[in-house]
Design a binder for these strands. Structure first.
Length: 574
RNA sequence: AGGGGCGUCGCCAAGUGGUAAGGCAUCGGGUUUUGGUCCCGACAUCCGCAGGUUCGAGUCCUGCCGCCCCUGCCA
């Protein structure tokens, strides 16, 4: 069975299609290539290893790796590990695994900002020597006060005029660990009156006596993002440093650092809008709260927008890539409908997923004119979209289960399924007619007594008569039990937290529905974890890792489109 | 006393002065042993608003309006 948890082949270059409109970033890159400003494009994906990657990261991944693949150049995976208090090795492993799963490859180009700590330090000394950086003794609170506000300029620190010699000495002693955390920082000397707050002598280094996941206890000072990032880009020869909109204000600082530190290469930062999805949240903080407060069952809960959650839910990386390609790349803040993501999942699974019969809410059907004790096998098509998928044999016998919602005692006009006196087809098997309805003491329908037409074997009759409905079914004697988990949106509102102020308050406590008495084809018994099937007329379902010998658990990946549900809702029937 | 961005169909999004692509959704219809898939058709006289330039403006100019981001020794 298909196990898509292994790394797929490299994504296809649909974007090389000249008919497909390009985005503003690709326009810039093509111009740079045409003018020979660059011979080859070099991008980078720079995650901080402090959380699990989610669909928002996937956009950044597909932008950076996708562009590098198209032009073609290369994309570096660089962990931005400059803050040891928040970062862990567990996350770097998760990030590497998820990028591979998405179908991208950094080859040899795996880097850590911490690899450059020594180099970065030397460049900082250079800045101090040139009088472009100084050690400041102000407290964090004082620095904040001196910074001014959005509308008022800041004022110079009393230590700003310190000589390069004195700053250098202090900086070296900071490195040596002579000072406590928070007592001093290294700052760039730029302009405390700049209208851009990022340029008001930003902090370059802070003292942190913290163990680092890679450099251990080698360092007592750690460089800030605004200093580390541009220099790492420059060191690696990144040509286009693509990041999200909130860094637009940092670009002057990015350029300042690259210009004044002693590095030869000048990368260009370009910003684009990050992905927002309705009914979901992509803030690491909120995601962490969901996990820690037990609102979900871990980072890979199928309701989570994490890539590990989506993988467990049965999402196909190709569908995610196609989605990301379809939403485009622009600078306008936007919010994409969740259903658009689902569309691309249906699109790939419709093509790929084997069809199988599973009855989610079983209703017993006894075929009264079918010989007791007899079993026969009918041939079923595995995938009408893929002839090479072939067929399989399904056991048929006197007692079968059909979906409870496929029967109505008193059907409305547009209901095409089974009802007293009506005939439907059991897919790939026979026509059956409902003769009698059996109820319990409370009046609930517990069983249907039907008769079948022996002439209709395979699903059609010699007389050519039609039925309006076709149901999936499973032989009672041969079916096996499974647990099925149905998922709805994790949140009750399209914009979690928008009105309540806290996304956690908008969590839908009923986003998970557990189904226990599900009856599935016996052939599913040895389905491998991660495999995805189409449960006929129901949707796509993925085998959950919690499955084991004698225990089958499925996660609903996405439903099929359901025109009937739409009609029924409109008619006020359901 | 601010600075940086963004506003084209319900949701994304092309468009780079020559008379509004495409996808999703929606609405009709056809095919169908999945009310799935597939196929056909409809869906912005209009581009945040108001002026102006031009033979011609979503694209240029001016002025408004609205939304997002920035005052971590986080990234």
């Amino acid at each position: 069975m298909d196990d898509h948890t292994s790394a797929p082949e490299a994504p296809r270059d649909s974007s090389l299609d000249p008919a497909k409109p390009k985005d503003f970033i690709r326009d810039i890159i093509e111009a740079d290539l045409r003018s020979s400003k660059h011979q080859q494009v070099v991008t980078r994906f720079p995650p901080e290893p402090n959380g699990y990657p989610h669909i928002g990261h996937a956009k950044a991944v597909s932008v950076n790796f996708g562009i590098a693949q198209e032009y073609p150049g290369r994309c570096h995976l660089r962990f931005d590990d400059t803050n040891p208090v928040k970062e862990e090795t567990e996350y770097v492993e998760a990030i590497e695994r998820d990028i591979k799963w998405l179908g991208y490859d950094w080859g040899e180009h795996l880097y850590f900002a911490s690899d450059y700590f020594e180099q970065l330090y030397q460049l900082a000394e250079g800045l101090i020597e040139k009088g472009l950086a100084y050690v400041d003794d102000l407290t964090a609170e004082e620095i904040r006060e001196y910074r001014g506000t959005l509308k008022e300029p800041g004022k110079n620190s009393p230590h700003r005029g310190r000589s390069p010699e004195e700053s250098l000495d202090l900086f070296r002693r900071m490195r040596a660990g002579e000072f406590p955390e928070g007592s001093r920082v290294l700052r760039a000397k730029i302009d405390m009156a700049s209208p851009n707050i990022n340029m008001r002598d930003p902090v370059l280094y802070r003292i942190l006596h913290t163990h680092h996941h890679r450099t251990s206890d080698d360092w007592n000072i750690y460089p800030m993002y605004d200093y580390t990032h541009p220099l790492s880009d420059a060191i690696e020869g990144i040509t286009h440093s693509l990041c999200s909109l909130e860094f637009e204000d940092h670009r002057p600082l990015y350029d300042w650092v690259v210009e004044h530190a002693a590095v030869p290469h000048r990368p260009r930062q370009i910003e684009f809008a990050r992905l927002n999805l309705t009914y979901t949240v992509t803030s690491k903080r909120t995601l962490r709260q969901l996990v820690e407060q037990g609102k979900v069952n871990g980072w890979d809960d199928p309701r989570m927008p994490t890539l590990s959650g989506m993988r467990r839910r049965g999402y196909h990386p190709e569908g995610i890539r196609n989605f990301l390609g379809a939403i485009g790349l622009a600078k306008a803040n936007s919010e994409v409908e969740y259903g658009y993501l689902e569309h691309f999942q249906r699109e790939v699974w419709n093509r790929e997923a084997p069809r199988v019969m599973a009855v989610l809410d079983p209703l017993k059907v006894t075929i009264t004119n079918y010989p007791e004790g007899q079993t026969e096998e009918v041939e079923a098509i595995n995938n009408p979209e893929d002839e090479s998928a072939g067929t399989r044999m399904m056991p048929f016998s006197r007692v079968v289960y059909i979906e409870r919602e496929d029967f109505m005692e008193d059907p409305p006009k547009k209901f095409f399924r089974l009802a007293p006196g009506r005939e439907i087809r059991l897919k790939h098997a026979y026509f059956i007619r409902c003769d009698e309805v059996v109820k319990d003491a409370e009046g609930n329908v517990v069983e249907l007594l039907c008769s079948y037409d022996p002439e209709s074997r395979g699903g059609s009759t010699p007389d050519g008569r039609k039925v309006k409905g076709t149901s999936h079914w499973v032989s009672a004697e041969h079916a096996i039990d499974a647990e099925v988990r149905l998922y709805g949106h994790l949140f009750t509102v399209p914009r979690p937290g928008a009105t309540t102020g806290s996304a956690i308050d908008d969590v839908d406590p009923e986003s998970l529905t557990l189904l226990n008495g599900v009856k599935v084809e016996a052939g599913l018994a040895d389905a491998s974890v991660g495999a995805v099937f189409q449960f006929l007329r129901q949707g796509y379902f993925a085998v959950d890792p919690e499955s084991g010998p004698g225990k089958l658990v499925f996660n609903r990946t996405v439903t099929l489109k359901d025109t009937w549900a739409k009609v029924a809702t409109k008619e006020g029937m359901q």
